[in-house]
Design a protein around this nucleic acid. Structure first.
Length: 728
DNA sequence: CCCCACGCTATTTTT
DNA sequence: TAGCGTGGGG
């Protein structure tokens, strides 16, 4: 039994305990039974969880390897590991790395378990892990075998479908027919899922969803395996609980089912990943799943000034599916939240660029400002403006290093050199650079493979020794296979770094980029070079490849003085003194695809909440009447989310700016053409401010015109005035 | 087998 | 706008 009394948080306690507030302490000290920490944005959620981990160690309730601490990202895991260690090393000697290996991501931890019982999951020792690209190729291949038209059903979509089922922990046979018919005719979906899994088994591989799902199924079937893993951990801690999917939920429930010392932290209001399987209902029903749960709310926000917090609170209170929290702050009240509309995305970008510069002149570092967009397409205009204004910025997120084509190519070479049976790697690089081994030759190989089995490389070898060299394709293939043999020797005999360099040089891959004269080839070469250099940190190719498949780390430059530009999703967990939220227009935010479904719309609102709560002191919410999207100018109404903002906390940008209503008449006869206009727009009942807009105009020269918006909905526009076609 | 022209479509993205 | 997949011609 826990003998530590909460009152013991006195002078005797470590400083990190004394620094906690009352609710946080409660969460830290409640060491028995299930605990749900419902923590609002900026309330010290992760800090509290880490303190709890340290407290358990501090009191000697468990040793490091008896605590299973689960996060979603490697970054969070390594932060937790470092902080837990700091404490331990003060009081214990000989800290070893293995002690902390049960602090990790869902995927890395589950993989570690799965490595212990691959056969039970139908895999063999040394199975590999597919990434998104490999998965897409496997699914495409299987879809085509099932005669599914892959131009109508794009592989990415099919993959999403199958992944969705796996995230729900559904086997092919358990996929209901209604669920299937949303995507494909009859039971094609189920068949595709089934074949995809078969193919993975043949490849002795699993995808990311399997990393969770395989252990879940094994735990459900094999009680002794489950028991041995259960008894290993005395405490389970989970960060970002609102982001778990059904499979992860089952995984946790199975592992935590014994002692029930499961502690989850999360914020239901920040659940923004439903599209990758996360289900907000998991956190909402935690107390039912784990009877006897002690629910603790962290509501004191240490991040945002009160006005920003009130705006956030108002936005999120429009949602119905939530546990409910009331955030408060003792920080001093500052300037209101600024809201403003612009003629188009260019004007909006110009404002942001200029305002970031203003803030900087007033002493705010560039790195303390961030622009958070809903969709990546919004970034382009902003970047162009920043470049033109020489405003230093950096894009956070986006294509990660290991996802770049050239890095994936280079990795495929290395994988193939190490594991010549890696067919996916084989297919990726056989003809890159061009070696005259095209689709036709590959088809021959695959057909032969179906009857004889073995890897593509083996099959190729066999075909060649049987038939001799006749056509150019066969000669080319022979050449490639013999290089492959050489590369394998390199891996065995040379130091890792030298082997890699030789392989990429001999294969002509580096030469391919050197001769390529497109403007990005130099950058690609550089990337491959830095990959090669990075190899020096690893003892063997196996270790390196394992690292790569799980740790898709961000390739980020040093922390420079730059304004951050990223999507709202990428901003979760971050904070800045000043935050700009552009693009608050119907269709962009909330996004078009989220408008029909109430649950999707609530998720968009949570996204807005996440955006608003990133800001400490200054917040700007803007929108544009027209915006270039998909290569055309789209006209959209201001976001309905704007109506949620409490007037008392806002200041309208144009109240301070030059007059914005441009009254006028069309200069020339305009017939059903796009024209510029200015509108008055109401917020709530009282506040009015001006918006530049554009719409469909029908008028003769000199006439007043009316403007019709495409959706024909009742709009919040109250007055239409034009300045004439093309007059911006 | 390779190349090019054409048409289609278009959130969010960790592991 | 751009990135991808397809289909026809060399």
């Amino acid at each position: 039994m826990n003998s530590i009394n909460p009152a013991a948080a006195d002078e005797e306690s470590p400083a990190w305990v004394r620094a906690l507030n009352e609710a946080q302490r409660e969460a830290v000290f409640a060491t028995e039974g299930p605990v749900l920490i419902l923590a609002g944005a900026g309330t010290g959620k992760t800090r509290t969880l880490i303190s709890r981990l340290r407290w358990i160690l501090h009191c000697g309730l468990a040793r490091p390897w008896e605590i299973l601490a689960v996060t979603f990202t490697n970054k969070a895991a390594s932060e937790m590991r470092t902080r837990a260690r700091a404490n331990w090393e003060e009081n214990n000697d000989a800290p070893r790395d293995e002690m902390w290996r049960w602090i990790g991501t869902f995927h890395s931890l589950s993989l570690r378990m799965l490595r212990g019982f691959p056969e039970a999951a139908g895999l063999q020792k040394g199975f590999s892990i597919l990434d998104g690209d490999d998965q897409a190729r496997v699914i495409k291949e299987q879809a085509q075998l099932l005669k599914i038209d892959t131009s109508q059903h794009r592989p990415r979509t099919l993959l999403e479908m199958v992944q969705g089922w796996k995230d729900l922990a559904l086997l092919p046979s358990q996929v209901g027919s209604t669920d299937q018919s949303r995507w494909l005719k009859g039971d094609l979906g189920e068949q595709l899922y089934e074949r995809y899994q078969e193919r993975l088994r043949d490849l002795n591989a699993c995808d990311f969803a399997d990393l969770i799902f395989h252990p879940v199924r094994v735990f459900q079937k094999e009680t002794d395996i489950l028991e041995s893993w259960r008894s290993r951990f005395r405490y389970i801690l989970v960060d970002e609980y609102q982001d778990i999917n059904t499979a992860q939920y089952l995984w946790l429930r199975l592992l935590g089912g014994g002692h029930k010392n499961v502690c989850a932290v999360g914020d239901d209001d920040q659940s923004i990943y439903s599209w990758r399987g996360a289900d907000i209902r998991n956190i909402l029903r935690f107390p039912t799943d784990f009877p006897g749960t002690q629910t603790i709310r962290l509501e004191q926000n240490y991040r945002s000034q009160p006005r920003i917090l009130r705006v956030a609170g108002k936005v999120i209170s429009a949602n119905t599916e939530r546990a409910g929290k009331n955030l408060y702050s003792h920080l001093p009240e500052e300037e209101p939240v600024r809201v403003g509309g612009f003629w188009d995305d260019r004007a909006e970008a110009a404002f942001i660029s200029g305002e970031a510069e203003n803030l900087r002149r007033n002493g705010l570092a560039y790195s303390e400002a961030a622009v958070l967009v809903r969709i990546t397409a919004q970034m382009r205009e902003l970047e162009e403006r920043f470049l033109a204004d020489s405003l230093p910025y950096r894009v956070v997120g986006g294509l990660r290093f290991y996802e770049r084509a050239e890095i994936r190519d280079a990795l495929a070479y290395l994988r193939l050199a190490r594991y010549s049976g890696d067919d996916l790697a084989f297919e990726r690089v056989v003809n890159r650079p061009r070696r005259g081994i095209g689709e036709t030759t590959l088809r021959h190989l695959r057909t032969a493979q179906n009857s004889t089995g073995g890897s593509l490389a083996e099959v190729g070898q066999r075909l060649l020794s049987g038939g001799g060299l006749r056509n150019p394709a066969a000669r080319n293939l022979a050449a490639f296979l013999s290089s492959l043999e050489q590369w394998r020797e390199h891996v065995e005999s040379l130091p890792l770094l030298d082997a890699a360099r030789r392989i990429l040089e001999d294969s002509g891959y580096l030469a391919m980029w050197r001769t390529d004269k497109s403007f990005e080839s130099a950058g690609r070469l550089e990337n491959v070079e830095s990959l090669i250099e990075g190899l020096s940190d690893f003892e063997s190719m196996e270790v390196f490849l394992e690292h790569v498949s799980l740790v898709m780390e961000q390739w980020q430059g040093a922390d420079e003085e730059r304004v951050s530009l990223m999507t709202l999703h990428a901003a979760k967990g971050l904070e800045f003194d000043a935050v700009f939220l552009p693009g608050w227009e119907e269709g962009v935010f909330p996004h078009m695809r989220s408008r029909e479904d109430k649950r999707d719309l609530e998720e968009e609102r949570r996204l807005a909440y996440v955006g608003v709560t990133r800001a400490r002191r200054h917040l700007y919410i803007t929108y544009a009447a027209s915006r270039r999207l998909h290569g055309r100018v789209e006209v959209q109404r201001p976001s309905s989310f704007l109506e949620l903002l409490p007037e008392s906390e806002l200041a309208f940008l144009h109240d301070e700016a030059a007059p914005v209503v441009r009254e006028g008449r069309p200069r020339e006869a305009v017939k059903r053409s796009r024209a510029s206009l200015a509108v008055r727009w109401r917020v709530g009942s009282r506040v009015r401010h001006e918006v530049f807009g554009a719409g469909e105009v029908r008028a003769q020269e000199g006439e007043w015109v009316s403007v019709h918006f495409a959706d024909g909905e009742k709009t919040i526009l109250s007055q239409y005035l034009t300045t004439g076609a093309g007059d911006v």
